[in-house]
């Protein structure tokens, strides 16, 4: 059963940047990067060592004392949130019939995305692995309070 697609009667005029195409491309560029970032994240945090059992404040401190994991988690934060939000936008476009509803949902999605990117970025870069006044048994072994 073959389908004949009619020749478009009016060719696409290109006055504006093709944002929909850039979005489409972004999903395909960020995807493989997220595979590396997220799969490593899962192996390091849930498989190696004691996995979920070992995760606490000191574990996070041990990772973020190293600029390598700061940059890793930063890249993961930005890419995953933008990829996820753009994917949700596609789904909203598919199902939200009314223009008003679609606008409201899309605006909310990007607002939440921006807020969480801002929050997460601040957390990664203002994080103190050895906060003063915290009880020593909750801190990483390299903290002076130990």
């Amino acid at each position: 059963m073959s389908v004949t697609i009619e020749t478009p009667s009016r060719p696409r005029t290109r006055k504006q940047a093709n944002w929909e195409k850039y979005g489409w491309l972004f999903m395909r560029v960020s995807g493989p990067l997220l595979i590396v970032l997220i799969f490593t994240h899962l192996v390091v945090n849930l498989v190696l060592g004691d996995g979920i059992k070992a995760i606490d404040f000191a574990f996070v401190a041990g990772k973020w004392a190293d600029p390598f994991w700061q940059v890793w988690d930063l890249a993961m934060l930005w890419l995953a949130l933008i990829h996820g939000t753009n994917g949700m936008r596609t789904i909203v476009n598919d199902y939200a019939g009314q223009v008003k509803v679609r606008r409201a949902l899309t605006t909310t999605l990007w607002a939440v995305c921006a807020l969480l990117i801002l929050l997460g970025t601040l957390v990664i870069f203002t994080f103190d692995p050895c906060p003063a006044g915290a009880s020593a048994e909750l801190l990483a072994s390299f903290c002076p309070a130990q």
């Binding site: 404040f57 996070v60 789904i91 929050l119 997460g120 957390v123």
Partner: peptide, 30 residues
């Protein structure tokens, strides 16, 4: 799966942000 992971990510960024509140707050939630 995309929608499910998305909503988990929203929660996960917030729970991780608790490291900035206090070691106790983070440990209790985690």
């Amino acid at each position: 799966s995309g929608v499910g992971i998305f909503f988990f990510l929203l929660v996960h960024v917030l729970d991780t942000a608790l490291v900035r509140v206090s070691p106790e707050a983070y440990n209790i939630v985690i």
